[in-house]
Each structure stands twice: as C-alpha cells, then as structure tokens.
Design a protein around this nucleic acid. Structure first.
Lengths: 277, 277
DNA sequence: AACACACACCTAGATTATCTAGGGCTAGAT
DNA sequence: ATCTAGCCCTAGATAATCTAGGTGTGTGTT
C-alpha cells in the first residue's frame, strides 16, 4: 500500500474571513457584530491566523487595534476576494430561487413604510416571494445576502440607489392633544426633539426602543412625538395623527432604496413598484 | 435593551471551497484527495451547499457527476475567487516567514535528486530554511502553499518553469551483476521495462513501492532496475551502479522545477541554485 | 451472463473546530 | 478618581465536520 504523506494544511478559511472583516472595520468589536459572533471569537480567529502566518497582523494598542504593514497589504486582496465570493454565492442563491426577494430595512421603516405597501406588490406580482428582515444597521450588500435595502443611509456594495426624498421631521400627536402634552422619544433618535427645536432637549419623557411603538402611543394620545415624513404619512392621511406645528426641519439624509444587483429582475421590479407607490 | 434581530446566515465557506474543488476536478473523489478528506465528506459539503442554494449543483450520473448549468456558471467565479485567496494567503505566509522555502517533490526525486543537492545550498544560503514535502502528485500551487515543485509533469498555477532535461531510462545494476539477474520493478513505474524494451514485460520480479528502495536493492546486487537519468546519476558517478546496456530511451517528459511566485526571492534563489547544480 | 470495479449515497458515532461566558487589563474620557 | 470602551484569556459547551462501513447503480472484463 502506498503511503500518502501528510500535506501541509491550507490556511483556515474562516480565520481569513474574520481577519478581513476586522481589517475592514479596524476593530474586532465591529467585525464581531458583522459576523454575528462575540468579540472573543474574533480575537481567537485572528490569533489562529497569526499563529499560522507566524507574524502579527494587528498591533494591539490597548485602545483598539491597528493593522501591521503585512496585515494591511493583504487585507485589500482579501476584501476583493471575499467580495467575489459574495457575488458568486449571491448568484448561486438567485439561481436557486430566482423569484425570492429579500429586503433589509430599518425596523421602523419596515413596519411603517414598507409593510403598508407590500400587499399591493404581492397582488401585482404574486409569483415573487418577498422576505423582510428588520436590521438596525444597513448590511454590506457584498457579504450579506439581501436584494434590497431601505435605510436612511446608503448600504455598502450596492449597484443602484433610489432616493425617496429627504427625511423631514415635525411634531405630531393625536387630534385634540395639546402642544403641552408630554414629549415622547425614540431610543435610536433621542435627538429628534433637539434637532427640530434647535436647542438641546434631553429625553425626559417616555422613551421607546421601537419608533413604531412610540408612534402607536402618540396615536393613542399619550403625547407628542417627532414625526418622520416617510413614516407618519399613513397616519396623517388617516387622521390618526396631525402635525401640531408649522415648522418642519429637513434632515440631511434621505430614505434610500439600495438594489444589490442590477441584473436581478425580481428585485429590480419590486424596487420600481416601491418607488412608484 | 435593543433586540438584535437574527440576520440570514452567510453561505458556508468551506462548502463553497469543496464545491469549487469538485467542480474543477469534475469528480468528488479527486476533490476529496486534493482536500485531504474522504469522498463522503465532499458529498456532504456539497449537499449542504445545495440545501442552502435550494437547487442541485451537480447531476448525479451514477458513474461520476456532472455540473448543472447553475453550478458551471458559478464554479468559474469561485475558482477565480479562491485563487485570489490562495495568492493572498501565500503572501501572508511569505510575509511572516520570508526566508522559508517549501519544496514539493516526487518521493524518488526528493530522495535521489534533491537531497544530495541540499547541503551545498544550505551552506551557500544558511539563512534560508528549506522544507521538503514528498508528494505523489504535483500540487496546485494556487491552493497548496509550496514555493517550489519538482516533478516530471508541470504543476498547476505556476509562475516559472525550469526544464532540467528529459527523463532517459536504461537498465542499471551493481557492477558484476549480469543482465540475466532478476528484474526489479517500481510500483509507480511498472511499465519501465516495457517502455525500455518496446515489448510488454509484466512485473514478475520484486516490486518496490519506493523507487529509492528499488535502487538501493539494485546497488546491493539484488538485480537489474530501469534507471531514470536524473535519479541514478549519483550512483553512476560513484560507481555503485553501472549501465548494463547501450540502449537509452528518451521519455516524453522532463524533470521540471516549478516556481510558484516570481517575486519570492528566496524560492527563486534556491531554484537557480538547483538548476545550476 | 456473471463478476468485479469505480463512484456516489446514507447513517451513526466520534472528533474537531468554534463559540459563549465571565473576569482582567490598559488608556482615554467624565 | 472613576467610568467606559476595547482587547486578552481560559474553561466549558455547542455546533460543524469527518470517518467508517454498508448500499445501489452503471461500466468494463472474463
């Protein structure tokens, strides 16, 4: 029997991916967030890779990390390579389920802007299966497999961006609730009141971790909330809420639909229907 | 506390690598060999990936497998991407240990051709650490991390190839051993006698799984062996063995030094020293 | 026609690789 | 001075991956 001599082992693939993410973000914690693991796991993977390489890839600076020269030189190559793998696996997924469209959106956008528009789209294109994922931060479309993103900031690695107009804020409340009612706050947008009034206002009223919760409370007459134009349009149209001041502040950001791939017909179709609605 | 919604999982990286290898070879068994795992493991990984994709990537043909259209379209992209990753991790390894040179060679070549030349090289370049791996088949230099390969066939993914001249075969034996002594055979080259004589000769004498073993036996007077020019040169020069016939057959292959990367200075240096010796 | 062969599939059990949890450290911010 | 953010470490738990051995199906050989 011919003996098969042991071959030297290949580099650990997952460690390379982890390293790439850490290098791109410049911090283990953020890489961990992207990869949905704990920072400790990232540290371990990078240590693995450094052992395999035989040299450090990051300088540990006690306050964050910094790439060594070797690490920086390789990180760019790896980013390109993993982007390519991401694109290839997107292609695979699209090939396997051509009529599935995955939408990533801010939780509030998903619930208050996207959700009301979905029934019409499902009716117009019943063959398209639409999945919605609520995400706090826009995904990197080269890595995470979404077809559409709807956020107030552009996502990374995107083919097409559709601007749905700027975000305007103004106070809203249920009809009959006075301007002296308690101020409601959203945990992610605690500065809304400050931005609208131009003066610092601390969150001394009820705070909600979901904007849609705060909005529901406002509609129930619990107080005054800063409305975001795209998100309160439906309530205003129905009369559940009314604007209680003339002043509207146009924020320096728009609601943006990001389309991951130009060729994906189903996703493109859904994006166009969303834009038109 | 803000809830972190679960994100859809990325594609399994190792499954992609396995798929790429299987697609490149067109067979699970060969992919398994390249990846140093059992064929069952390959089948499982590919099944994993097919489950993730939601569509088959291979048509199982009972005698081997064939790529589906979707599989074929993606395989090329993945090959490029993994080549890029291979290059990047080569770079990492070279950056970490710039003076290490890994040589892959046929076992017989490693022992009979390379080994005698190493002491001089180590002396001429003592700062270079040379590792030698005996491999039955040439590696794909894009994937497995060798700097030099020495085989009778070119390796894949190679930057430079140095031809050391054709392989010539002729019978050799210890001095005083007649042409009527038993014929010795090497398991991997059982056809040597047939090729030299031009007539089929079955392996009816002692067979050795390593050519260097057969050669040692021949030198000890156990019989006549077909000598390969590069591998018996040392024994001929020392007089341990002599050619017992005028007839030399020039085989349609050369001993080739493959250099993985043009830039790798240490590897290039070693290759040049080997060529010159 | 009967046989062995090559190839891939499946399942269960074992083995690794990987992750989480919790505690410690350092430097900059409050 | 204390707090916070970010990274390190270790041990134990979890999940991914591999091996082993048996099955089925075409192909080539006797």
């Amino acid at each position: 029997m011919p003996i098969e001599p042991p071959r030297p082992k290949s580099p650990p693939l997952n460690a390379l991916r982890t390293f790439e993410a850490a290098a791109r973000h410049g911090a283990f914690t953020m890489a961990a967030e992207e990869l949905c693991v704990t920072p400790g796991a990232v540290a371990q993977q990078i240590k693995n890779l450094e052992d395999w390489v035989g040299a450090p890839l990051f300088d540990r600076k006690a306050q964050g990390v910094a790439l060594t020269q070797l690490g920086a030189e390789t990180a760019r190559d790896l980013t390109l390579a993993f982007d390519q793998i991401g694109a290839a696996s997107q292609k695979l997924r699209l090939g396997g389920r051509p009529s599935e469209v995955r939408i990533a959106a801010l939780p509030s956008v998903a619930q208050l802007w996207l959700s009301p528009r979905l029934p019409a789209i499902r009716e117009a294109a019943p063959d398209i299966a639409i999945s919605v994922f609520a995400l706090e931060t826009p995904p990197n479309m080269n890595r995470e497999h979404f077809d559409l993103g709807i956020f107030y900031e552009p996502a990374e690695g995107v083919a097409v961006e559709i601007d749905l107009g700027p975000d305007e804020i103004f106070p809203v409340s249920a009809p009959g609730v006075g301007a002296d009612a308690p101020r409601l706050f959203d945990a992610a947008w605690v500065d809304d009141w400050s931005q609208w009034s131009g003066a610092p206002i601390s969150a001394n009223g009820p705070v909600f971790s979901l904007y849609s919760l705060a909005l529901a409370e406002a509609a129930a007459g619990a107080g005054v909330l800063i409305g975001h134009s795209h998100l309160v349009a439906n309530h205003l149209a129905r009369g559940d809420l009314i604007a209680i001041a003339e002043r509207r502040i146009k924020l320096d950001r728009s609601l943006i639909i990001s389309v991951a791939q130009k060729g994906a017909s189903a996703a493109q179709k859904v994006a166009e229907m969303l834009e038109a609605s």
